[in-house]
């Protein structure tokens, strides 16, 4: 009886642990997709001329990007190393193997967002700013994002 209890508890805890980690992965993906919508759907679309220039929408998008950047490191706790996420991409184990470099990418991304916040005043400054942010995304995704195959 004791053994059954211990086994059942262990299984339940195990499942609880797994689903907590899956929650972290899905929160991470939600944050990344939100970044994509703000960058591509708002800032990029305006820079390309698909949407009219709208300073209030730009400020809101940049504020959201800044919030998400602050939370970025927390989306990659040690417990999620090597876990494969649903969808197109997973995090590379290299994040945890070279954590300091990964964190320096986040710092450089956050700095770029605040610089862009200060610089964007019209369509020309926006056109110059979006590729700067895009480079920050790719700079990390080059090394630390894996395609699911």
């Amino acid at each position: 009886m004791k053994r059954v209890f211990v086994t059942v508890t262990a299984i339940l805890l195990g499942i609880g642990g797994v689903s907590a980690q899956q929650d972290i992965l899905s929160q991470r993906q939600t944050a990344m997709k939100e970044n994509g919508r703000n960058l591509g759907g708002v800032l990029g679309a305006m820079a390309k001329g698909e949407k009219p220039y709208d300073q209030a929408a730009i400020d809101a998008a940049l504020a959201k990007l800044a919030d998400n950047a602050k939370a970025m490191s927390g989306h990659f706790p040690d417990s999620t190393k090597g876990l494969k996420a649903e969808g197109k991409y997973s995090a590379s184990p290299k994040i945890w193997d070279s954590r300091a470099d990964f964190e320096s990418h986040i710092a450089s991304y956050s700095k770029a967002i605040s610089e862009v916040k200060a610089s964007v005043k019209d369509i020309d400054t926006l056109k110059a700013a979006v590729p700067v942010l895009g480079k920050q995304c790719s700079g990390c995704h080059e090394t630390y994002r894996l395609q699911n195959s």
Binding site: N35, P131, G134, S138, G139
Partner: peptide, 24 residues
């Protein structure tokens, strides 16, 4: 053209892996 300049896909996703290096 915008992807080749910024690495950003129309949906806001970004180039990764070797393509990130190509965008440079």
């Amino acid at each position: 053209a915008y992807f080749l300049e910024s690495g950003l896909l129309p949906d806001g996703d970004s180039a990764g892996g070797s393509m990130a290096s190509v965008i440079k």
